[in-house]
């Protein structure tokens, strides 16, 4: 029996995922070779141990959640290029809606793949052009004593404040508990690092959300 279009997409997708995996690892390797620096494995491990349990678990959840909506080709492309929930998923769904086709049909697969490929190329090109335009002025902006320096020193509160407010607006009820827990922990141990604190706040957040879901509070 001949292979279906879906079978072929999965074959190309497997090859492209593995190629991307190798390509991604070549980048930090090339940086190490070029700069002739080899960070101790323990520091890399210590950096990873704080984030991998969360990131990799979320990756599983995202894959299971998004794959049925994105289609096969769209999923392979989206997970290589990232920015799924804020860009690739709405773009793919919008294109299928406009073309009046449904996810999980061959027509939906085709439209979703074309839309996400166009989106991936556009994103890559726009970011590349923007970076090239900004590169001459950035060193002046970040230099010590520059009026912009305090702004760059407050990147973390600015970023997580904005991200947090976005989630606060949608998930108000589950927002306060993990923040309060993080603050309480820091009141007792003020130099507790963010990477370690994440374990506590994520566990509290998941437990709180699950209990509220079970009690029909969310």
């Amino acid at each position: 029996m001949g292979k279906t279009y879906f079978d072929r997409v999965h074959r190309w997708g497997k090859i492209s995922s593995l190629t991307s995996l190798v390509f991604m690892f070549l980048i930090p390797l090339a940086i190490c070779v070029h700069l002739d620096v080899w960070p101790p494995a323990t520091t890399i491990f210590n950096g990873l141990i704080k984030i991998v349990p969360l990131f990799w678990t979320v990756a599983v959840i995202e894959l299971i959640t998004y794959a049925p909506m994105l289609g096969a080709g769209g999923t392979y492309l989206s997970f290589v290029t990232g920015n799924i929930s804020n860009l690739k998923l709405p773009c793919g769904l919008n294109a299928m809606h406009n073309a009046d086709v449904r996810p999980n049909t061959e027509e939906g697969e085709v439209i979703s793949t074309i839309a996400i490929a166009a989106s991936a190329i556009t994103t890559t090109v726009i970011i590349a052009i923007g970076v090239l335009l900004f590169s001459p002025v950035l060193p002046m902006m970040t230099a010590e004593g520059s009026p912009f320096a305090p702004a760059f020193q407050q990147v973390i509160p600015a970023l997580f404040g904005a991200l947090g407010a976005g989630y606060f607006a949608k998930h108000r009820k589950i927002f306060f508990l993990p923040v309060a827990m993080g603050v309480v922990v820091l009141l007792f141990v003020p130099d507790f690092q963010a990477g370690t604190l994440i374990f506590i706040t994520v566990a509290v957040s998941l437990a709180g959300a699950h209990i509220m879901y079970k009690k029909n509070m969310v």
Binding site: L159, G164, H171, I174, M181, V183, A194, I198, A203, S205
Partner: peptide, 19 residues
């Protein structure tokens, strides 16, 4: 998925308040 991400954000918000 939202709760996991909120937990991550909460750690950094708490650090900006009391770290």
């Amino acid at each position: 998925a939202a709760a996991a991400f909120i937990g991550l954000i909460a750690a950094f918000i708490a650090r900006a308040i009391a770290g």
